[in-house]
Structures are given as C-alpha cells and as structure tokens.
Design a protein around this nucleic acid. Sequence first.
DNA 1: CGCGTTCTTGACTGCTTTCAAAGATGGTGG
DNA 2: CCACCATCTTTGAAAGCAGTCAAGAACGCG
Lengths: 246, 246
Amino acid sequence: MNVAESLATIDHPALRRIAALAPLGADERSLLHTAMTRNLRTVPARRDLAIEGRPVDQPLIVLEGWAFRSRILNDGRRLIFDFLVPGDLIGFCAHKNPLAMTTISTLNPVTVCVAPQPLDDSVGEGLAEAYAVSHALEQRYWLRQMTRLGRLTAYERVIDWALEMFERCHVGEAVWPTSLRLPITQEVLGDTLGLTSVHVNRTLKALMRDGLLQIAGGKLTLLDRERCTRIAGIQQARVSGASLYR
Amino acid sequence: MNVAESLATIDHPALRRIAALAPLGADERSLLHTAMTRNLRTVPARRDLAIEGRPVDQPLIVLEGWAFRSRILNDGRRLIFDFLVPGDLIGFCAHKNPLAMTTISTLNPVTVCVAPQPLDDSVGEGLAEAYAVSHALEQRYWLRQMTRLGRLTAYERVIDWALEMFERCHVGEAVWPTSLRLPITQEVLGDTLGLTSVHVNRTLKALMRDGLLQIAGGKLTLLDRERCTRIAGIQQARVSGASLYR
DNA sequence: CGCGTTCTTGACTGCTTTCAAAGATGGTGG
DNA sequence: CCACCATCTTTGAAAGCAGTCAAGAACGCG
C-alpha cells in the first residue's frame, strides 16, 4: 500500500467512523483497507439490502450512500427505525442462523463491502471492540428513538433527530459542520418520527421561523445548535468510558 | 441440596425461559443451577438495579420479580422501554468499560443472581448461544416497541403490548394461560405506551367493553386472544419490504 | 420543456392530553 | 376488626396537537 492510497483511505468517512470507536492497530487498519477495496457491491437506490424474516448473510460495512431500517404494517403504515450511513455495520449477529429483524432499503446508491473478521486475539481485538461499540451505539440510538416517539412533541422530535443525525455522521469528531446532506423526503422523515408528512412540513416551517434548523434542498442545516441542544434536552448516556463524545 | 429443591429449580420460570432459548447440556444446567442457588440478591420494590450512565458491573439473571428499563427527561416526562421478568438478563455488554444505557428500577422485590460465564468451548457453547438469543429477542422487542409508539393507536398499542407480555413470559411454551399477574399501575403502562394514565384508563375500559382484554386487580386477562391477535396482526411484517412505494 | 414527485397550504376532524375531583383500593396501626 | 391514609382508578369537560382530505405550487429529472 503506497502513501497516496493510505491517505485516501484514512480520509474515507467509513473508515474514519469505525476507527473512532476503538483504537486499531496497523494490521487491523490494513485488514479494513483490503476489505474496503475488494468485494465491493453497489446497490441502486430504492432497493432492499435485507428483508425482514430472511436469513442474514455476511456482515457488511456501508461505504457510500444512505439506507434505512423499516417495518411496514399490513395496512400500509410504515415506521423507519433508523438510518445507515457510511461506516455503519449490517448483519452482525452473535447467535446461530439469524434472521433479519428489519427490512433495510437504500435511499440512494449504496456501496458496501464485506466486514473483515478478526483473525485471532492479537490481530482483531481492536476490530472486535469497534464492532461491539458500533453495536452498542446502535442500541443507544434505538433507545433514543423510542424516547422521541413516546414522549417528545413533533417540534422536539425533529430537533432531537436532527442532532442525532449529526452525531451519527460525525462520531468522534471534535467539530461538527453546520450542515449535512440528507437524501430523504419529508415523507421518509414522517415515517421516522411517527408523524404525517404534512405535519413534518408544518413543523419544519415552524423550526425555520424560529431560527432553529432548516431542512431544504436535501440539506439539513443547524441554525442555532445551542438552542436546539437545550430544547432536545434529553440526557445522553455514554455507552463506554472511551471518549466518544468530547 | 435435596430432591425437592432440585425439582423446584428445574421448574423455575427463569431457568425454563433460558433453557428454551438454546439447547443446554447437563453441565450447563448445573452451572446455571449453582448460580441460581448462590450469590442471590434481593432488591426491594421501587429501587434501582442500574442507573443510566453509571458503569455496568456483573451480568445478572432475574430470578423473581419485575423491573423496568426507563429514561426520565429533564422536565419529568418518563418513557419505559421494556420490562424485565424472571429469566431476563441484565448487564451483558460485548465492549469494554460499558455504561448503563438505561435506568433499571424494580416494581416489586426482585431477586437476581450472577449470570454464569461459559467455562470454555465445550461447557458453555449452549449457554453463550442462549445469552445471544436472549439479546436478539430483546432487540426484537425494542423494534416492536418503536413500531407501537410510532405507528399504532392507543387501542392497538395496549393490545399489542399485552400480547407481547404473554410472549415474553412464556417463551418457548406451547400453551399460554389466559391471564398473567402484572405488578404495574396504569401510570406505568402509560409511560410504557407513550400515553397518559388517563387515556390508558379510557382505552382499557374500551377494550373491556369490546371483550378483548382486561387489566384489573394486578392481572392481565386475554378475553379474546383470536381477535386481539388479528388486531395486533397489523404489526406482522409484510414480505415485500420494498418499501418506498406503497 | 414536460411530467411525476415532492412540497406547501387551508379547512376541518379527531385522538389524546390536561385539569379537576370524586371514588375505589389496599396496607397499616390502633 | 375497623379507621385511616396514601395510592391508584375513574369520570367529565374543555383544549390542543396531530391527522385527514384536497388542491395548487415548486422542484427535479430525463
């Protein structure tokens, strides 16, 4: 691996996010790098990466694009559990013969690679730790989603969700940008927040009017992060002593 | 230990539930049995077994009593994520230095024991599998909870939740009893379903009027399981996840 | 440029909450 | 055994947040 490749890979958002979860050795980074440059698969937008109830196959890493986990009720109602962005893991299961618990669908073209397995105790300890922390974070997001759906108003839900998206996309980074590209419609956001798209629209208008945040043109912009954080007001528990958050 | 004790333990709901998750060898049952008769700890009602943000200590098995996982917002709003009943596991984490993601509080006196660790690959494979399946089930319940909170009406939420409680308490059992003792108030149920206790009360009245189920005197009774299943059945996943198009 | 998707807005409906107060329940001590 | 108290349940009236329905405007892609 030459220097140019090394730099390019180190800058890859997916690798950056995974590396932020646990300290990785040079050999582990190399394992990841190899996986990320081979066995790539790109799935077009609006396709399923997994279908609820079907057997889970190889564990994957999302390298490019966005996807979401959802469930659709018999009468058509849909709930979106969460989004998968570069650096997220798919299909890790500790037990035998696992079945997919949710459907995973792409929002735009998604590139994945097979997640490398830890080789032995020396090469892979950090990797295993990173996978475990990634899983713990996912659980934390699910708890936060339950709290949003169960106890926050529409206004609060949008704010809290927006902050979470920044967190997810910038794990371990000291500074957040002020905006984030989102390939999602208001309908998708509604199904994520347990609202109708009409009410999402009205709520977004109110949030912009109040100078808190803006979602327009496929871009989420935090207009007043300070005030958003205060309104969301949910205490955030850290999952690990490691300094993932500041 | 005399025979009577042994029989009593084999019939113990906690052991029965864990054994239903994966085939356990005689030595593994023995490990569990030893753990379940030593190092017991009983915590009174209305105490915390864990506090969000604090370090997680030994993994535990609930032997007796009920507890719940919750989060309380700054202004006092509370969401209950799920309930822990005999046979449920607490404090299993794959990564280092884990912190509790939720507070766990007891509803009545709860007896726990330390969960035995698998000894090696021969004695413990089934145990490890049981723990993994238990964890997967927990995640499944969380997804179901998100769906309830995000997309079901109050009426549907109560029904779906009631069926889930029977499922949780009778994992792997062919026949369900028609009723279940629940040490929970309507206030607790409201915080579980994202409703006010007042509306829970009204909804319960409606469900009883419609002959579907009854929650009274600390007992949940399924009056018409068939019809309840049909109403909650909207939660059954559709095979065609393909998602964006309705 | 044209068409389908997405966004926006208004009017109306309705599920759920809020507020308040009375009634039931269960445990405790006299 | 009963009085007493705290907790929990129940009910009504009014208000509010979010959903529904509908239609026009804006956007983006080919």
